[in-house]
Write a protein that binds this DNA or RNA. Structure first.
Lengths: 343, 343
DNA sequence: ATGAAAGCGCTAACAT
DNA sequence: ATGTTAGCGCTTTCAT
């Protein structure tokens, strides 16, 4: 008898229930819910809407997905969502997707190709309608995705890939503009901190640095190849500072690396920008609140996210090749200094 | 004739196809795929497995979800996934979920109650199997979720909530330990930077600070109530430093706020920790690479994530009340100084 | 050990 | 304008 208090496990409300309650057929409920494809008389429509409200009916997405063959789900794979750049990109993607009624399954590859492949498998079997991939390698294995006919958009790329849409910023031009700014400050010895991998955006960032130097007739500065992380930047900073004649300015090709560089500089008790200037690439929030605030080449993350979501939801996606490149913006803050450094 | 090159839109491989290819019934394929509920002869099993491999068959998650009434999907709502603390928590949750074969729908409420409600609606209609919620308000509106019979676990809480499982750390004890550490360094004038909201974890963090002071017989230091952001911390820092007699140490109740405080201090050209010591709460990576590196009270994010995922996937979830509290760890770095400050 | 078939909730073509 | 109904791919009961 005491067990009578047990809460009845409510069976979820279905379209059947709504139809019955409103005294119409299930088809009509469908027409109302989806605003089509058939018209419904205003009076009937009102009845159905009432029933929906009263019963607190919510369409079953799984059933809908099964019927339509579309889940309204996007898959997103990034190396590390904890990295502010990817965190901001992911956030922007989520917003852009949400605006289109799409939800996103966010996953982390930890920068490992194997893990990335596993994730793709899982996402495919979840019937995602599109895949946004910031891949570890230059040539991700997309055979399974292609076989499943899922549109793909590559993120964080410096060029298109065979038959795919890719989005990125103009890393080369951005880097060049940043380094040129350093040169305008009078610097002639500008070091580079950049990723360890060859190709990809790393090469483009490096190329921009080189171009700016060449343009100004300056000699190539010292380079430190390290991981795209704070730790990597720290290591790079130490290496550059320990040279016989350290550069007077450093271009770090990502915010994370710049943060690490700053730490290395602070540890040697040099002043930024008076003893050494620093400039970074990405423009994530963290660059604004470092000490000193970093001059940075900002990527238009929101524009890129929107473009990526747009592209992946277009019919033509997956069957076209296109590279969507976005311009960067030089955000000038304190780390690059006001005056040329004399040493 | 040219159009013949057109790629045939492959119909996805279904369980039917596999059954036909392997010369068995669809039921047997099911038994093999799910390792149950019926046994299958080893030879048959092998045939089916071969067919699966050959046809590159992947079960349709939507169909499975419809049939089973379970999507293997978790919903996650945080105020801002761009905040390193939530980024790390989300990342850890994703890992914990993935280990259980669950995927997670990550969403951002932007700290707005209305947006939060909308997200919950959307997540519910996607038939999530469980909800992880770091809510904006002290008492989230969970009526819809409850009606849908979806287990909920509250994140980032300092206490249980009626009928719900909640996870959090011991904010009060952690804060107290941190402030006590400052006191051991000889500080007697310790300011507090804390959230603007009353109640919730804010109150607990404040209580810990107060307790440590009381314990040591010290007077209550100055308080700045600001948002849980870098900007908020900056504002708080300025306010505290502009006092007639600034505190010699500041306890910032989150890493983000501490980062802002550091900026304010640097701008006044005071030295940390020599002129003023700082200590923070959370222990996200960013605290490690600030300058100087922040002494911080670290939350065991991974443990919390695992516990949250475990709890939300338990049958009993949603019908029990429990508060899972995790201990913090004091991570000592440079920002709290070695010696008492004399001013 | 295996197979046949009902049915999960929804959409839309086809009827009326 | 509205109703009837087949079928999306899967699981599992019930039969064999």
């Amino acid at each position: 008898m005491q067990d009578q208090e047990r809460v009845a496990a409510r069976r979820p409300v279905t379209r059947q229930d709504v139809a019955r309650y409103a005294g119409v057929s299930t088809a009509v409920v469908s027409y109302v819910v989806n605003s089509g494809p058939r018209a419904v008389a205003p009076a009937t429509r009102a009845k159905v809407l009432d029933a929906i409200r009263l019963l607190d009916y919510r369409p079953n997405a799984a059933a809908r997905a099964l019927k339509l063959g579309s889940t309204q789900l996007l898959g997103l794979v990034v190396p590390d969502s904890t990295n502010p750049y990817f965190a901001e990109l992911s956030h922007a993607i989520e917003e852009a997707a949400d605006a289109k009624g799409l939800a996103v399954l966010q996953t982390n590859s930890a920068g490992a190709a194997l893990q990335e492949r596993n994730l793709l498998q899982k996402l495919i079997s979840r019937q995602i309608d599109g895949l946004l991939l910031a891949s570890v390698g230059a040539v991700p294995d997309l055979s399974r995705v292609a076989a499943a006919n899922i549109p793909v958009v590559l993120l964080d790329r410096d060029e298109g890939a065979s038959g795919l849409v890719a989005v990125g910023t103009d890393y080369r031009a951005g880097s060049r503009a940043g380094v040129r700014h350093l040169i305008e400050h009078g610097h002639t010895d500008i070091g580079l901190v950049v990723g360890r991998d060859t190709g990809g955006t790393t090469a483009a960032r490096e190329a921009g640095w080189l171009e700016a130097l060449a343009e100004a007739g300056l000699a190539e500065g010292p380079i430190a190849h390290v991981g795209f992380s704070r730790e990597g930047g720290y290591e790079a900073g130490r290496r550059l500072l320990n040279r016989e004649r350290p550069p007077t300015a450093i271009f770090a090709s990502s915010d994370m690396q710049a943060i690490g560089v700053l730490r290395a500089i602070h540890e040697t008790e040099w002043a930024v920008p008076d003893d050494i200037a620093v400039i970074s690439f990405d423009g994530s929030v963290e660059s604004e609140f470092s000490w000193p605030p970093l001059t940075t080449i900002r990527q238009p993350v929101h524009d890129m996210a929107r473009a990526a979501v747009d592209a992946v939801t277009q019919d033509r996606a997956g069957s076209r090749e296109e590279y969507l490149s976005f311009p960067t913006e030089l955000v000038i803050r304190a780390s690059c200094g006001r005056h040329p450094i004399k040493r």
